[in-house]
Amino acid sequence: MIRADDGGSRARPGDDGFAELVRPYEHELRVHCYRMLGSLHDAEDALQETLLSAWQALPGFEGRSSLRTWLYRIATSRCLNAVRAGARRPPTAPLPPFDVPAPSREERVTWCEPHPHPAPSADDPLDVRHGLEYAFLCALHSLPPRQTAALVLCDVLDFTVAECAEMLESSPTAVKGLLQRARAAMPPNDPLAAPKDELRLAERLARAYAADDVDGVLALLTDRSWLAMPPAPHRYDGREAIGRFLRASAAGRGARYAVEPSGWAGGHPVFRCLIDGEDRGLLMVIAASDGATVSGVVRFLG
C-alpha cells in the first residue's frame, strides 16, 4: 500500500489521480533518463515507458520505499534496458567535403546530445548545470552502463548506497565497487567560468568562426584547447592542430557560416550554424575557468 504522504490513496490504474501523483517527478525523471542515455529523444521514450510501467505496477507497490525512489528504480531499469538494446549508439558521421587534416587523435565517439536549459544565474552559475555539463556527460557515457547508473544515483542524485543497490537489484558491496571504478575513471571536476564571462567569450569566438577568421579564433585558444566534432571521431588539440583543420574547412566549404545564438545547452552557450539558410548543426563553446580563454569547442555535425 502506498504511503499516505505519497498520495497513493488517490490513485489507482485508470484513475486521473495517477497523473497528479507522478507529475511532481516527471521533470527530474526525464533529466535522469537523459543523463543515462545522452539523448533527449531516447530519454522521452524511456520516461513514457517508466510511467506506463509504474501505472501498471501501482497496485503492487507496498510502500517499503518512497514513491520517488520506486519511480527512479523503474526509470533506471528502463534506461539500462535501452542501453542493452543499442539506444546509445552514435549516429553515422557525415563525410566532409574536403581532405581532413590528420587529427591529434581519434577517439571512440561518445554521442551525447546537449541538454537545453535557461542560462545560469549570476548568483548561482551551477544551478542548472549540475550533472548536465557536457564534459561530465561525455565522461559518464564512456563508463559501463551499471557504473553510469551507480554514479548518477549516488553522486548526482544523493541516493544512499543501499537505495542504489535496491534499484540495481544488487548488493551494497557490489555498488561500492561500481562507484569506486566509476569515480576513478571520471576526469577532475574543473571549475566553470562565470556565466557572463563565458557568454562574452563564446560570442567573440562564434563571430570569428562564422567569418572564417581563423587567427581570431586561435587568439582565444591556448595550447591546451581542443576541438571535437561528434559524431566524427576526430579531435584536434592545441592551436596549431585546430588552425590546420579550420583553414582546410574554410577552403573546402566555399561558403561562410551564419551563426545564431541558440541558448544554453550542456552547461555552455551554443550557436546554430547555417549555410545558405540550411541548418548545419550546433557550435558549443566551453570557456576556461579564467573566463578569458576557451578550453574547448564542440562542433555537432549534421
Results as ranks from 00 to 15, higher is better:
residue 42 D to I: 01
residue 43 A to V: 00
residue 22 V to F: 05
residue 49 E to L: 11
residue 117 H to A: 14
residue 20 E to V: 12
residue 57 A to V: 00
residue 100 V to R: 13
residue 44 E to A: 07
residue 108 R to P: 13
residue 78 R to F: 01
residue 79 C to K: 02
residue 52 L to E: 14
residue 94 P to K: 07
residue 22 V to I: 07
residue 72 Y to S: 11
residue 64 R to C: 13
residue 19 A to M: 10
residue 42 D to T: 00
residue 102 A to G: 09
residue 31 V to W: 07
residue 99 D to F: 06
residue 91 P to K: 03
residue 66 S to M: 05
residue 110 T to V: 15
residue 31 V to P: 12
residue 24 P to M: 03
residue 71 L to V: 00
residue 58 L to E: 05
residue 44 E to N: 08
residue 112 C to L: 14
residue 82 A to H: 05
residue 122 A to C: 10
residue 42 D to R: 03
residue 125 P to L: 04
residue 57 A to C: 04
residue 69 T to P: 06
residue 64 R to Y: 13
residue 99 D to M: 06
residue 25 Y to G: 08
residue 124 D to Q: 11
residue 109 V to D: 13
residue 22 V to N: 10
residue 74 I to P: 03
residue 25 Y to C: 09
residue 113 E to M: 06
residue 44 E to Y: 03
residue 102 A to D: 12
residue 114 P to Y: 07
residue 69 T to Q: 15
residue 80 L to M: 02
residue 120 P to W: 05
residue 35 R to P: 07
residue 36 M to H: 04
residue 103 P to E: 06
residue 15 D to I: 01
residue 44 E to C: 03
residue 112 C to I: 13
residue 34 Y to L: 15
residue 94 P to E: 08
residue 110 T to R: 15
residue 102 A to W: 00
residue 25 Y to K: 06
residue 28 E to Y: 04
residue 117 H to G: 09
residue 84 R to S: 11
residue 82 A to L: 03
residue 64 R to M: 14
residue 38 G to V: 02
residue 60 G to D: 15
residue 83 V to D: 15
residue 15 D to P: 03
residue 52 L to I: 11
residue 69 T to F: 11
residue 74 I to L: 14
residue 58 L to A: 07
residue 16 D to F: 08
residue 96 P to L: 09
residue 54 A to T: 01
residue 112 C to P: 07
residue 54 A to S: 11
residue 107 E to Q: 14
residue 48 Q to N: 12
residue 102 A to R: 10
residue 92 T to C: 06
residue 87 A to M: 03
residue 19 A to H: 11
residue 74 I to C: 09
residue 46 A to Q: 04
residue 62 E to Y: 03
residue 30 R to C: 06
residue 71 L to I: 02
residue 34 Y to T: 12
residue 33 C to F: 03
residue 30 R to Y: 09
residue 84 R to E: 15
residue 35 R to L: 09
residue 120 P to M: 09
residue 57 A to Q: 10
residue 125 P to I: 01
residue 76 T to D: 04
residue 18 F to I: 11
residue 101 P to M: 11
residue 76 T to G: 01
